[in-house]
Design a protein around this nucleic acid. Structure first.
Lengths: 338, 338
DNA sequence: CTGAAAGCGCTTACAG
DNA sequence: CTGAAAGCGCTTACAG
């Protein structure tokens, strides 16, 4: 045979001397009692010989389903999304679904063509940490939003972010802190707005509570600068509450550069509990967010949705991990000098 | 209209009072000069009204292409793969391709069904950090391997891993180190075998060079234990070469627990230069691997392959980043006590 | 136990 | 400028 294209089920049928239907039945595993074992074997052999693999596009078209779910995330560079994916895959696999990750928005832009391939050949969408309007162009596709604004009509799985902040403030207050600095993530996501709101509320309710606030990119250099701003104020905070573990790492650097010890001069807390949290010295007090569980429950929710059910809104509690970066508030001191 | 399924181009045609072909032409953007502007407008309006979105499966079947590439990675939890994805997307977007990430092997297992959906409805595969046989079940699909054994027949894009190790050893030797400990990653990947081999060769070529070696999972606790083993030997190394930045973080912890200062008592190096490297104190001397560039060049290579060309093998140099974790070798000392 | 036929929803020559 | 028809490669009733 000369250079030829990929074999189809027709080729297999011809090779095995049977009809296309028989090939489909056999290869689809639905042949017992309908096709003789001998025929089945010869079909398998023919398929093997030809290196046949079914065309998914045809299959999807015929079946009207892809058994594939798209996990839409704003970035794959944050350590948070790996576990989310892993959790989603775990439950998807049990139901014969595949999960594929997709970063949105991407550089391709929607202007290119209204036919953006990977976004459509799917049965459902799991969208993590996005604004609701991200789903606008997917209307009609069943979707579940993760770690996002729960006020919309789309089912969500969220974290108990406010409770997490509450736990941090309670912990800090118990150590005698009441001048708190918030190094907030300069990222326009619901979760960070919720964190800021909860923190402000909690510190406001604290006797003598004083909150200072600045924002930072989720990145060490920027976080160091931001923390430095807070720490060099006239009446500096004794504890820095950071929106993310990576920001906390920047706060450590700021403190050290200013000659302050973590935690005896200044306490630092993070959020997420990624690998970095225990790689740091001292290990970081932070709120662990069950990212993998979020992926799992998100997929669970999506599966229920695809099943025609009305899944409940789910909220996963964050867990405060007290480690070495928080300690009793030091006696009042002057502002550190740069 | 009662509860109905998703509209098709036929529905749009009917709504606009034109034929299916006209709808396809208009919505595909190939209408100028072939369809009157008025007709085109009414098609667009009808499509809008109905919330029409084309069925990708049908489109893919008809066109025989998906303009989608699968990025296969062993995990999404390692910080390395985010940039690889990002780089791949960057060049894919320029060519109208989408990129979708897929972790393999996954829990689904191949036993479930020979028809694994997401793996097939694609034009090509970018497989990162995998054994060659990972591609076995994808035979026929154009593929490029990243950071993998280059000895096979599949085109590859790799890192100059050996040169990176060479640079590390040269740097360390220049500081007077010759007793080197290798905290190797206990991961069966080509890149780590290449690192081990290069390091052994380089240290072997060093006057008085002595290499000790142990392995560790790519994870802080395991790395700490591994580094401790090396550091508590009778004639301990003065420098620890770690296969990964995260392992280096564990080495820091081991040193501190043993009362050793990094870098004055023991130098530590990493590999990769992920965010963590500069979050640590002292900042980590490591070899930066251009992960994003690998993704970009990998996609470039795949595009060439899809184009029927025979792309060259590409190698990207690692760059030694000298930071605070390496210093001149200390005078000989006794083994540290646990 | 096996085959012929229809049809999933597109796109693209081909006619007119 | 517009439409009717074929066909991409499957799967699934339906006949026999």
């Amino acid at each position: 045979m000369p250079a030829m294209s990929r074999p189809t089920s027709k080729d297999v049928a011809h090779e095995a001397g049977v009809s296309q239907s028989t090939v489909s039945l056999v290869l689809g595993g639905k042949w017992t009692g309908r096709v003789s074992p001998a025929t089945a074997r010869s079909v398998h052999e023919a398929a093997e010989r030809l290196g046949y693999r079914p065309n998914q596009a045809a299959r999807n078209l015929r079946l009207g389903t892809t058994r594939t779910v798209l996990l839409m995330v704003p970035t794959l560079t944050a350590p948070f999304f790996g576990p989310v994916y892993t959790g989603a895959v775990r439950v998807a696999a049990r139901h014969g679904f595949g999960v594929v990750a997709y970063v949105w928005p991407d550089d391709a832009g929607p202007a290119d063509s209204p036919f953006a391939a990977p976004r459509e050949a799917i049965d459902g969408i799991l969208a993590s940490s996005m604004a609701v309007d991200a789903l606008a162009e997917f209307r009609g596709t069943p979707a579940v939003m993760l770690d996002s604004d729960p006020s919309g009509t789309v089912p969500t799985v969220g974290f108990g972010v406010a409770d997490g902040m509450r736990a941090i403030v309670a912990h800090l207050a118990g150590l005698g802190h009441h001048r708190i600095g918030h190094v907030a993530a300069a990222v326009d996501q619901w979760t960070f707005r919720a964190r800021a709101h909860a923190l402000a509320t909690e510190v406001g309710a604290l006797p003598g509570g004083a909150l200072s606030r600045t924002t930072s990119a989720i990145e060490v250099t920027s976080a160091k600068a931001a923390a430095t701003r807070l720490l060099t104020r006239p009446d500096p905070p004794t504890a820095l509450v950071c929106d993310d573990d990576l920001i906390a790492a920047g706060a450590y650097k700021a403190a050290r550069t200013l000659g302050l010890d973590v935690p005896s001069d200044v306490s630092v807390t993070g959020f997420d509990d990624v690998l970095l949290a225990t790689a740091l010295e001292p290990e970081l007090t932070t709120v662990a967010l069950p990212a993998e569980e979020m992926g799992a429950q998100g997929m669970q929710t999506l599966l229920e949705l695809l099943d025609g059910r009305r899944p409940p809104r789910r909220v996963l509690p964050g867990v405060l991990k007290v480690r070495g970066s928080t300690a009793p508030s030091p006696p009042p001191r002057r502002a550190a000098r740069r």
